[in-house]
Design a protein around this nucleic acid. Structure first.
Lengths: 138, 138
DNA sequence: TCAATAAATGCACTTCCGTTGCACTACTAT
DNA sequence: ATAGTAGTGCAACGGAAGTGCATTTATTGA
């Protein structure tokens, strides 16, 4: 528990009760979560608080936002020490068309792409869609 | 003009006046367009018609939908003969953080990715974000 | 310690996009 | 010509993102 507080502090985020709970929730889930998911999990908390907490976490490099093609923003905790902005830390995400869950495949990095002249890449988002491990095994 | 009619017919879409206009509009733009863009371009047409036209086009393989991370669906014409579902035809998209435009880089295919055991990929979406040719040259 | 200040949270509301149901019109085929 | 199908237009709904402001909670400095 103290670890979470430390992690937040280290990233310049004041460890309030709410923030610790949200962090804990995301750490327990192994999949990317949407704002609505958190909202349902914490019925008492206000949507705006959760929304702004995620924004803060994102700015401070605690979570990264994932766009899995569902038009709903998902978020997942960054690996400790990861630097999401750097190309080498850009991993891909997998969206299961069956269970509708999205997970980080942190081991699978996005390959470097050669762009035509004049294009400068700053960020990349790669989402594979299909059937996940859990669903294909059944 | 007759070419467009033929293209639509070939893909099993009846070439109505509206559809031809929309196709023409998309052919002239070289960037991916959102529903709202088309709506603004054809003030007289109803949003629903445009929406359903795009859906039809998509089903019939005339356009493909792009999720560039802006939370707004964009659409672009498929290359003639392209088969969007097939892995080999999956190209990447580039979203410019400056002019906010999204374009297809049809020459740049998405590299094949080796997934962990149990994962089956059916589709892929790769969007690079940064500065486009037009904006970087200025 | 206590007031002054800043940060975090909660509430209400708006906007925008995607989507659907239903009625009406235009086209097609017999 | 008429029945049936496909296309279009109107109205409305729902979900998610985002914002402004009031209130509470935490921090700081005298």
């Amino acid at each position: 528990m103290k670890e979470i507080e430390k992690r937040l502090n280290d990233n310049g985020v004041r460890p309030t009760a709410m923030r610790i709970l949200i962090y804990k929730y995301m750490a327990e889930k192994e999949i990317a979560v949407a704002l609505t998911d958190i909202e349902n999990a914490f019925a008492k908390a206000d949507r705006t608080t959760l929304y702004r907490t995620l924004k803060t976490f994102e700015e401070k490099g605690i979570v990264h936002q994932i766009d899995d093609g569902t038009h709903i923003s998902k978020f997942a905790l960054c690996e400790p020490g990861c630097n999401c902005e750097l190309e080498q830390d850009l991993h891909l995400h997998f969206h299961c068309n069956n269970c509708d869950e999205t997970i980080c495949l942190t081991e699978q990095k996005i390959p470097h792409i050669n762009l035509p002249d004049g294009y400068v890449a700053e960020d990349a988002n790669l989402v594979l869609k299909g059937i996940c491990e859990k669903c294909s095994g059944q």
